[in-house]
Design a protein around this nucleic acid. Structure first.
Lengths: 167, 167
DNA sequence: ACCCATTCCTTGGCCAGCCAATCAAAAGTG
DNA sequence: CACTTTTGATTGGCTGGCCAAGGAATGGGT
């Protein structure tokens, strides 16, 4: 008698009834990340590393603190990720001559070679995940997600951004 | 001259131009998970554990394999998560008398006590993230996300579901 | 009755990602 | 000039989460 409870087969957990959109978002995002991870594995990347590489492709060379800021990651996360990317030969790190604390990061030729594959992964996943959605629907989805993003950004600022002025 | 490149200030990485919705989704989801994580930390939970607890609240007692199936997680992930939840006193694990391989899992009183907090976390985050969205917009967002979820579920089935019949 | 495939779970190893503590260098302040 | 604060980066430790490999019990097939 393990699965007798009818609630056990319900899709949305009863404790999340107050956040139906939120839990749907979480589920979709997880599936999306997994799908992206499958594509990245074929390229030799782990999920998360593609964002770092994309940033480096756009920036040329960048200081580590800049990457931390733009990706919104923890400094330690960036340090370790870059150590691994460097070991894979995708990235080169060198001390900044203008600031002996800082580290300059740039992609190698091998790192640049990943770009086409990552671009295809994004396009491919976009087509796969938005299949059956007309351009209007896609635009609407992008618009709504943008609103949510702004709301969440505001909340994040409230929580952690007490540094600049008052508070 | 570290930040001279104008593309460096662009919001969307150029390598993701083929997947604008996808990258927006990834960003929103990350912010959402972080916001949820902040609320969960106050309750004594880590992100991901709330889904496990929610499942257990709905199921009563469940076999570990059932949790793996319903949450879509790796068996090893579930094993370790349950070991930690048990150590925190939120969960109790006992051998299934009907099958000596299996493990039965159920919430403790302390685990049940978390429920109100988790419910509030979901509701609170829903309000915060959907602020400024009228019910029609929320329904539309839920509908669109549902479509994406289905597309991604299909893809996941294609990738890993070669077990049952042909193939 | 026997053997083999399947199922259930655990362990170890690896990654992303966070927090806390630490150190070195730079910048501000007296 | 010296002292303090702030910034840049690293290390260690913890979590979620995956894969690969293994062991133990069940169940099917002959």
């Amino acid at each position: 008698m393990t699965t007798a409870d009818p609630a056990c087969t319900d899709q949305t957990p009863s404790a999340a009834r107050g956040g139906p959109v939120g839990i749907t978002l979480a589920r979709v995002a997880r599936a999306h990340r997994i799908a992206m991870g499958r594509r990245l594995r074929d390229l030799g990347l782990y999920p998360g590393q593609e964002l770092m590489m994309m940033r480096l492709w756009d920036c040329g060379a960048a200081r580590q603190s800049e990457l931390i800021q733009s990706l919104g990651l923890d400094p330690s996360t960036v340090t370790k990720m870059l150590q691994r990317l460097e070991q894979c030969g995708y990235v080169r790190r060198s001390p900044d001559p203008a600031d002996r604390r800082a580290v300059l990061v740039e992609t190698t030729e091998r790192g640049r070679a990943l770009r086409a594959g990552v671009e295809r992964a994004w396009s491919d996943l976009e087509e796969s995940s938005l299949a059956g959605l007309d351009p209007a629907g896609r635009a609407e989805l992008a618009r709504l997600l943008g609103l949510v993003a702004e709301n969440l950004r505001d909340e994040a600022d409230e929580a952690g951004g007490c540094a600049p002025l008052n508070c």
